[in-house]
């Protein structure tokens, strides 16, 4: 009985932890630049809040996080060209959680990602790891 409760407790613990992982990782790795509310920084750092980029470039998002991004991009009609660092140590589960946090917060309500979808995206840009 006690063991059952303990198991249940750890299970829910684990579950809520996973749920918060996206937020935790976002705060740790992304908020410095994109800000806690996803607003970005003027014309230097693009917003994630209400960003059309998240919809128009959905297929590239996992690779942007894993490998960073350089060069000019347009988000909500504005040009950005600053360079985002790579997060090569994040695994597909963590990237999925971060993306889902971004897609469903800051006023966004975009479809969520699944791990297989992120895995496929990362597979398609795996050559970037080898350079």
């Amino acid at each position: 009985m006690a063991a059952g409760i303990a198991a249940l407790l750890t299970l829910t613990q684990c579950f809520t932890d996973k749920q918060n992982e996206g937020e935790r990782l976002y705060t740790q790795y992304c908020a410095n630049c994109h800000m806690d509310d996803g607003s970005g920084l003027r014309n230097l750092i693009p917003p994630l809040a209400g960003a059309d980029y998240l919809v128009n470039h959905r297929d590239e998002l996992a690779c942007i996080i894993q490998h960073g991004q350089t060069g000019n991009i347009v988000v909500n009609g504005k040009n950005y060209n600053q360079g985002m660092p790579a997060f090569e140590h994040l695994n597909k589960g963590q990237i999925t959680n971060i993306l889902n946090y971004v897609q469903t917060n800051f006023g966004n309500s975009n479809p969520r990602f699944t791990i297989p979808e992120v895995e496929k995206q990362l597979f398609d840009c795996r050559h970037l790891l080898e350079q």
């Binding site: 908020a31 410095n32 800000m35």
Partner: peptide, 15 residues
């Protein structure tokens, strides 16, 4: 300008 950590936050506060 290429600071990957606290600089953008500092700049948003300096703003």
């Amino acid at each position: 300008t290429t600071c990957p950590t606290i600089c953008p936050k500092m700049k948003s506060q300096m703003l």
